[in-house]
Design a protein around this nucleic acid. Sequence first.
DNA 1: ACCTGAACACCGTTCAAGT
DNA 2: ACCTGAACACCGTTCAAGT
Lengths: 195, 195
Amino acid sequence: MDGKPYIAQRPKRADGRRNYDAILAAARKAFESTGADASLEDIASQAGVAIGTLYRHFPTRASLVEAATRDGLENLVSHAERLSGAPDPLDALTAWMREAVAHFSTFRGLVGILARSMYDEGTPSHTMCNAMHRSGADLLRAAQAAGSVRPDLTPDELFDLLSGAAWVREQAAGGRDGSPRFLRLVLEGITIPRA
Amino acid sequence: MDGKPYIAQRPKRADGRRNYDAILAAARKAFESTGADASLEDIASQAGVAIGTLYRHFPTRASLVEAATRDGLENLVSHAERLSGAPDPLDALTAWMREAVAHFSTFRGLVGILARSMYDEGTPSHTMCNAMHRSGADLLRAAQAAGSVRPDLTPDELFDLLSGAAWVREQAAGGRDGSPRFLRLVLEGITIPRA
DNA sequence: ACCTGAACACCGTTCAAGT
DNA sequence: ACCTGAACACCGTTCAAGT
């Protein structure tokens, strides 16, 4: 519904780049310990910059989250490309799904942001979400073609299942860790027993 | 980890009861439109009371959420009791699960609060969560005894699945409604095909 | 027993002034 | 091109004064 979202870019000038990196490092630490709604003022002061500098590089919280998670999600996508065409498409899909859930629950609140970005173009993470969608859809299609996964499962549904698993994992973080079991149930629910 | 959590009680004096009810009505409306993190000042002014009055009746946001959802969740529990001992335990379980998911996603943020309350005694909603856990466990046990649901599924896992479904539904609210499909996938994943 | 609203703290966000 | 920090707005939370 919006115009193009702002995507943060690493500055060319040395001082700008130094601050940009320091903010990102502080943000990742803060997100990990407090969640996606960590205080921006805290992040700025941890990075040793004034609040205005944080806003200059990352005009919205969403743009900071996108920049903080960009590398990890890029790796997830490129790992999917490496896995595509693997001898056992089901193994490839399940391995990738486990990895995806881990990435989606990097910190509290991330999976919610990603889930909304998946279907909202006015969001910094939307491009990355589209790339993940394509990667996941490819692996899914291959596993379905091999007769290993129920053929009526759509890519959208795959991501709903991944997001749900990641959210449960996010909630359980700290206490009982229910997520490996959750994903196992999901996987056993969508796979077709080998004849 | 805390002492006993505060549970809101409807006052006996007429003016107090009037305000209590007005705050609850305003809170439900605000939660439904804005989510569980709706502004408490807004709620107070919508209810026509000063902010101090809101805090007197509901000293924490969690206590207000608990009071706002108490009736609905009580109905869910009593419905489970009515369903227990039904002729078809699988039908009973699935009907109850659908209802539970609908209740858990009454407004944005609720399912997260409930999921945390389930395993945290220092929380106003914990008692209600325990009651729901018992109800669900009973229906699950019956369906498993009838051979309709995989016998290794635990009540904790059942609630992880319900919470995950509710969260997906919460996210999808407004856009594409992915949840009925999500729950269907979960149900088909845990049920044992009738021989 | 209950209500009011001022007071304080904290945080997000903007912007004029500076290098 | 980039940085600083004061300024403003908004909200959560407490509490002294009142009925």
